[in-house]
Simulated scan of single mutants.
Amino acid sequence: MDRLTIIKVGGKVVEEPESLNALLDQFDHISGNKLLVHGGGRTATEVAKKLGIETKMVEGRRITDADMLEVVTMVYGGLVNKRIVAGLQSRGMNAIGLTGADLDLIKAHKRPVKDIDYGFVGDVDDVNPAELRLLINENVVPVIAPLTHDGKGHLLNTNADTIASELASELSNYYSVYLFYCFEKRGVLVDPDDESSVIYDLDLALFNQYKNEGVISDGMIPKLENGFRAKMKGVKEILITNPENIATGRGTRLV
């Protein structure tokens, strides 16, 4: 099968022009088919603050009421997405910005209320990659924003790591998929303040141990949970790293 590289970018990397440009330069050098999934949570938080809308987070997941849904739709589907698309076009890559609603790409349902009401947050039900594959096979680079739809006219905020994992899992039926979770750190760190404390090989048992001990916490938890899920569904390789190490393949490898 042909290789497909999926880069999920978030954190400071996607928020700051200098780091985003460095990421896009590295992305440009990846050969073969490629796809980019992005976050943009910090920008959404900043825009919400300017609009007087409070941001609430639980274990790295954003509580999304009706006002916050409007903010993330504007920021993820508009500002951040089109900045990346423009940056790729400037490097000679023909890119298209999409959400899960476009091409009926990703359907989801509103997360049921259990202990926490996450509001308009979507849990993925179905990925429909047919048209996406046509784009990829024509050397178009899809840039996917973390928004889905329920098929009834409603948009839902969906974790970008989940989007990347679900797309990688489904597309692994058609390509040899390499999934890179890319952010500002060199990988998953034992000590967040020590860049040399990278965990180079991480299996599920060690992940659960570190999670219980609080070594791995907050937004890293859904990232790794989604990564392991994708690995079990046939994704060839999953790496958590920073832009500089996309080419070297160094970082935290899920095994």
Rank of each mutant, 00 (worst) to 15 (best):
S217E: 15
I116N: 00
M220G: 12
A168I: 10
M220H: 12
T158I: 03
D123A: 07
Y174T: 05
V113R: 05
E237C: 04
D126S: 13
L132S: 00
E131G: 04
D123L: 00
S196R: 12
L147E: 00
V198T: 03
V113N: 03
L204N: 03
I136N: 05
L156D: 02
L202A: 08
M232V: 09
V113C: 06
I116F: 07
A164C: 11
S196V: 05
D191G: 02
E166T: 04
Y118K: 01
A145T: 10
T158K: 05
Q209E: 14
R133C: 10
E170R: 06
K114C: 07
L179T: 02
L156C: 09
N139W: 14
A160T: 05
T158D: 02
Q209C: 05
N226F: 07
D123Y: 10
I116E: 07
L202E: 07
C182A: 14
E138V: 07
P129C: 01
V141E: 13
S165E: 14
S217V: 14
L171E: 08
L147G: 11
N128M: 04
I216P: 13
Q209L: 05
V188F: 12
D201W: 10
L167D: 07
V177M: 09
K185L: 14
N226W: 06
Y178F: 15
G122K: 06
T162A: 10
D125T: 01
Y178P: 00
P129W: 13
V215S: 05
P142M: 08
L156F: 10
V140Q: 13
Y178D: 13
A145W: 09
G227D: 03
V190L: 15
G234Y: 03
G153S: 08
K211G: 03
G187L: 12
D191A: 10
N159H: 13
G187H: 13
P129R: 05
D201H: 00
I221V: 15
L132E: 09
V140M: 14
K110W: 12
T158C: 05
N173A: 09
Y178G: 08
D150L: 07
M232D: 03
L155A: 08
A168E: 08
E225Y: 04
V127M: 03
D194Y: 09
L179D: 11
E184A: 12
K110C: 00
C182M: 15
E170P: 00
H149L: 07
F120S: 05
L155T: 06
L204C: 07
A160V: 03
D117R: 06
S197T: 06
S169M: 04
Y210P: 01
Y174C: 00
L134W: 15
R111M: 06
D193K: 14
L206E: 14
I163E: 03
P146K: 10
P142K: 08
S176C: 10
S196L: 01
K211N: 01
L189R: 12
V177T: 01
V198H: 13
V127Q: 04
F228S: 00
N157P: 06
K231P: 04
L134C: 14
Y178T: 08
V198I: 08
L156W: 07
L189G: 11
H154E: 14
Y174N: 04
N137F: 00
G153C: 12
F180C: 14
L147T: 09
D201T: 02
N208M: 10
I136Y: 08
I116A: 04
D193S: 12
K185I: 13
G187C: 10
E237G: 02
S196I: 07
P129M: 11
H149I: 08
V190E: 15
D125P: 02
V215H: 13
Y118T: 01
G119T: 00
